[in-house]
């Protein structure tokens, strides 16, 4: 790094000084290593020539990537997860954004109660959310399956959408809207041409978060999906006898797709900033 060696100091002192100065960086490198070891494992074992039980390294192959649906049920489970994720994300993003605008842009009676009702689902453990919903569905003789799962996912995603979009609304410069009004835009035009475009990155981020929460959810889904399989359920049930490498292919792909989406978002932001 930028250390200028001081000749009068003994080597051991210099080394300890270097450590002192770069401690936080060394720590960060260690931290990132820790973060990425399981990712490395997941990706590496997607190339494992493992057959049925993918616990031990047996040799390199591309066949899992060439045939991601090769293991029984894995693609059906993935399809269900994607379908539920898309429906739940759409509904939760719309409902949550409306609430965020109400809280972020208006003062009204019951605002604090609303905030509390948004906060509570996030402060409730998933196992409670999942079991209470199933108990209610059973009491009303509704069979668990796709739609009860979607209803549950929308419910736990709404709060996260509200929090994300609300933060974006709060960070807006009010002078931009005032400027639009000064230029004779009415309230509706101001909202459509100024406010909404400015909040849009927040809404997009919230949708991305909602989708990843829904797609990755296991506990609530396990309670309310009945016999329908999802990708996390598939991994959980096959974990005992060893998951097929195709599951790792799907996990690795999700990782890469998410990275591409985030990178694209950053590029768009940078272009806009210019």
């Amino acid at each position: 790094m930028s250390t200028v060696p001081i000749p009068t100091l003994p080597v051991s002192k210099r080394i300890s000084r270097w450590f002192g100065r770069n401690l936080i960086r060394i720590y960060a490198v260690l931290g990132f290593t820790y973060l990425f070891v399981p990712v490395f494992y997941t990706i590496a074992f997607s190339f494992n020539n493992a057959g049925k039980s993918n616990l031990v390294w047996k040799g390199f192959t591309l066949s899992n990537w060439a045939n991601p649906c090769g293991a029984p049920d894995v693609c059906a489970a993935l399809g269900n997860s994607l379908k539920i994720g898309v429906i739940a994300t759409t509904a939760a993003t719309i409902l949550g954004t409306l609430i965020a605008f109400a809280i972020g842009r208006h003062r009204f009676r019951g605002r604090a109660t609303t905030n509390l009702l948004i906060f509570l689902p996030m402060a409730t453990p998933e196992v409670v959310l999942g079991s209470s919903l199933l108990a209610m569905f059973l009491a009303f003789r509704i069979n668990p399956g796709v739609w009860p799962t979607v209803a549950a996912h929308v419910m736990f995603c709404i709060s996260f959408v509200v929090v994300t979009v609300k933060a974006r609304i709060a960070s807006l410069d009010p002078r931009l809207e005032q400027a639009a009004m000064d230029l004779y835009a009415n309230e509706r035009e101001t909202f459509r041409r100024v406010t909404l475009p400015l909040v849009m990155p927040g809404i997009a981020g919230a949708a991305l978060l909602a989708f990843s929460l829904s797609f990755d959810d296991f506990i609530i889904t396990n309670f309310n999906s009945g016999t329908m399989n999802t990708f996390p359920k598939f991994v959980y049930t096959s974990a005992a006898r060893g998951i097929p490498a195709q599951a790792n292919v799907i996990g690795s792909s999700m990782f890469l797709i998410a990275l591409v989406i985030v990178a694209a978002g950053q590029l768009v932001n940078r272009k806009k900033a210019r």
């Binding site: 399981p38 997941t42 296991f218 996990g251």
Partner: peptide
């Protein structure tokens, strides 16, 4: 790292 599935991470 958290875009790879929660369950796959645990299995890893």
């Amino acid at each position: 790292p958290f875009f790879t599935s929660f369950l796959l991470r645990t299995v890893a």
